[in-house]
């Protein structure tokens, strides 16, 4: 499941479009501003490749829309932007902390054998890591399902790889151009 060349091409096209939109606003600004714009456009380009089919892309678009709504709207004008942005994300499950803690205490009272304890420890470790993954992947805390989370992570990693590939090649080319 390596990122394909067609994905690279598509991403490059999108990104170029985004940069053209961004260009007048960042022509004479600081480096950090420019960097932010570039990163935002790249993120949106990456997310728009999925066309709203995946959870992480929708979450990413929502996040970027809070930062630069105009850019997002411009970049997603090709596809159904409304559908993309306004698509309902699954609601976060909210539960009362005290109640959860109490129930955990009740569970803990049961005496366990050594084997069970080890299994519980391993489970706890995995749970913590899964939580970490949720924090890393955009929209991860909205995925209640472990299977869904892993699937989205797979997809997210693929698109991240594409993005990095394209950006790196562009940077290389740009550096070469300046040297020239």
């Amino acid at each position: 499941m390596q990122p394909t060349s067609s994905m690279n091409e598509e991403f490059l096209k999108k990104w170029q479009m985004g940069l053209q939109i961004v260009r007048p606003s960042i022509d004479n600004t600081s480096v950090s501003e420019r960097k932010k714009a570039i990163k935002l456009s790249a993120d949106i380009a990456m997310a728009s490749l999925r066309k709203g089919t995946t959870c992480w892309s929708r979450a990413l678009i929502q996040k970027t829309a809070t930062e630069d709504n105009f850019l997002v709207r411009q970049m997603l004008s090709g596809i159904k932007e409304e559908a993309l942005i306004n698509k309902r994300l699954p609601k976060k499950v909210v539960c009362h902390r005290k109640i959860v803690r109490r129930s955990k205490k009740i569970l803990r009272r049961k005496t366990k054998s050594a084997c069970e304890e080890a299994a519980a420890k391993a489970k706890k470790l995995v749970k913590r890591r899964t939580q970490g993954l949720r924090n890393v992947v955009p929209g991860g805390d909205l995925m209640s399902n472990d299977v869904l989370l892993l699937q989205e992570t797979l997809d997210y990693i693929m698109s991240l790889q594409t993005q990095v590939n394209v950006m790196r090649s562009i940077v290389d080319a740009a550096e070469a151009g300046t040297e020239q």
């Binding site: 480096v31 990163k39 993954l133 890393v136 940077v171 300046t178």
Partner: peptide, 27 residues
């Protein structure tokens, strides 16, 4: 890995911003 990729993207966009003042033209 995901975090490293994200950092990589940050770094690359920074680099692009530094190297070229007009990125779209560059592309």
């Amino acid at each position: 890995y995901v975090q490293s990729l994200q950092r990589q993207i940050e770094f690359l966009s920074m680099k692009l911003a530094v190297v070229n003042p007009r990125p779209d033209f560059d592309i």
